[in-house]
Design a protein around this nucleic acid. Structure first.
Lengths: 358, 358
DNA sequence: CTGTTAGCGCTTTCAC
DNA sequence: GTGAAAGCGCTAACAG
């Protein structure tokens, strides 16, 4: 005859075995178990071993939420980016994930889709979710950072990466955009190009202004006067609008009496879309117009023509940003030591900027 | 004279205002506040309004961990993928994130880096972290799914996406790889190609076998006999090894007495790397050899030549997988209704498969 | 060395 | 209509 054991209806919680279960099974108190599992010195070696063995055997794993509630921290960090579906961002997330995992932090990723409103919602959710800190690359649209600043003032560690802004005082990690733009422009100049256009985004971020300034600086240093009509800014918040703006910009450039012989593009999307459009419109690159731009795509080699690029150390930016945030969370920094790190970019020369045949 | 208020030392918790704070401030009990904020009918309309107003003003947001602890669920889902730095995966994550956010779930993303060991570690962490369910696209290396199966048996909802396996009985969402491969091969055949090679991965996943079968089926249906020597499998776990294998494979193909006039490639990485290599080795696509492959890159148009592709509905796969998981979590499904959904792929014809000039 | 107890913030009976 | 109290799983101060 079978003895029917009353099936204890489990809570929907995914965890089965708790400290209490172990305590009951081993006829010990909950705190003894807790201490043993935390390797406290006040527990006898024998008891400890017995407990550890039982815990291992029954796949005990502490409930993160209970622990978090108790300790006032969740060992999770929130990451806010414009979009997951983005080459460069994905590489940064890769770096963030690697470092976070090494330090036993989970990452909770949110997308702002370039919208200030969504971004605020993301931050609210993360904060409400109890993250220990936030890594953020702000949306292009965002002008008002007061919410984030107020959270920071309330003690939430925040680190900016990729797109840096002045309004927030904290650690910031990005690429050396000035130098990257300078190098790209200098490369064009040394290859014989003189009428160099610059396609950028319509934002106030340093990521945009630094690149513009690098471009201007290279021109100035080479004795080429800056022609404002060769600078165009695209709407970046919406892929469709961006494409439209780009097509317009190219049409505008090519209709200019003194039209550009080269274009330096400021972002991943702009660079690649621009090449697509130039091809589509029948312009021969680099004969009709040369092209170099910021982008991290591995496919630059397979493009038509192979695209010269400014490569950002995206993975490393992610790693460093995560390290900075974690050190902030763990209190290894006084707020006074906030620093802004600009990692070097790298020019990769390919066929789209072959020396100009004059 | 200033009255010095003793500053209550806050816990390191990022949350400031709690139910208790509101209760104290409004001279009500904690449970009243809780009920009011949950819009319970047992609370008077006036009291409710007063409480809501106060809560809003002070940016009250419930502590996710406390709530989770109490309710036995975390409103978070774990996502395990091979890598964040991957076009197709990023698009799937985008879809997963969108749906999860709509349903007020957070996503915690983990990378297996194609390693079985790391993958198990990811799953363990997620489980210990108390996720309500897991979405997983298994690592190429993984052979043993017993851990995942045991968690599932213990009540953890699991949904497979992208890379589907038979060992686990649950909802599965992927692309219609058989049809995609069939279409791609038929396209080559109808454009006059007869010696069609197939470059695939060395795995047992249906994602690989389905594509192979689609290819074979198209050949058979067209009265072309399948030549095993035109099938090559690459090691996929390591980008460097993959590239090596690809270079070898191409050399092998081109050294064949009856060499292929077209290649059908089975994955994103293989397709794009293959084009890069063909260009590098001086083969003219499609004159020397045509190329079509699975990949979602938006840059196909800008490639040299524009690459014909089989496009997967990656975003939609992510969306659907997340929906399935959430419905599982929320108990809207009996385990008997598990289904496997294969979303249609789409052939995008470009110059790399121009009709063969015989 | 081990156990008791209080409490993290929240929900949920059950009294009043 | 409102409040008191228990308890989710865990840690830590304090007793024994």
């Amino acid at each position: 005859m079978q003895i029917s054991v009353p099936i204890q209806k489990k809570k929907s919680m995914n965890h089965s075995v708790t400290l209490r279960d172990i305590a009951k099974a081993l006829n010990l108190s909950i705190s003894t178990i807790s201490k043993a599992l935390n390797d406290s010195h006040e527990i006898g070696i024998e008891t400890k071993q017995k407990i550890l063995a039982y815990a291992k055997e029954h796949h005990y794993s502490p409930n993160r939420m209970a622990k978090g509630l108790k300790e006032g921290k969740s060992r999770s960090i929130g990451v806010v980016v414009c979009s997951l579906d983005n080459n460069v961002i994905a590489q940064m997330l890769d770096g963030i994930h690697q470092v976070s995992t090494e330090h036993a932090y989970q990452i909770i990723i949110m997308q702002s889709k370039e919208s200030e409103k969504l971004e605020t919602a993301c931050i609210e959710l993360l904060y409400a979710g109890g993250v220990d800190g936030i890594l953020i690359s702000p949306a292009y649209e965002t002008k008002n950072f007061s919410y984030l600043i107020s959270l920071q003032a309330a003690g939430l560690p925040v680190v900016l990466f990729d797109r840096l802004i002045d309004q927030i005082d904290t650690h910031k990690v990005g690429a050396d955009n000035f130098k990257g733009a300078y190098d790209a422009t200098m490369h064009l100049i040394s290859n014989g190009y003189r009428n160099i256009a610059h396609l950028n985004t319509n934002t106030i971020f340093s990521i945009a202004t630094d690149r513009l300034n690098g471009y201007k600086h290279a021109l100035a240093e080479s004795g080429i006067s800056y022609r404002p009509e060769l600078l165009r800014s695209c709407n970046y918040t919406d892929a469709h609008k961006l494409n439209e703006d780009l097509e317009q910009a190219i049409g505008y450039y090519m209709g200019l009496p003194d039209k550009p012989d080269a274009i330096f593009t400021a972002t991943d999307q702009i660079s690649t879309r621009c090449l697509v459009l130039l091809n589509k419109l029948g312009y021969r690159v680099p004969v009709d117009v040369a092209l170099i731009g910021f982008t991290n795509t591995e496919l630059a080699d397979a493009m038509n023509p192979a695209l010269s690029t400014v490569h950002q150390p995206a993975f490393e930016i992610g790693q460093l940003a995560a390290e900075k945030l974690i050190s902030l969370i763990e209190g290894k920094f006084n707020a006074e030591d906030y620093e802004t790190v600009m990692l070097p970019t790298q020019i990769k020369v390919r066929s789209s900027t072959l020396p100009r045949n004059t």
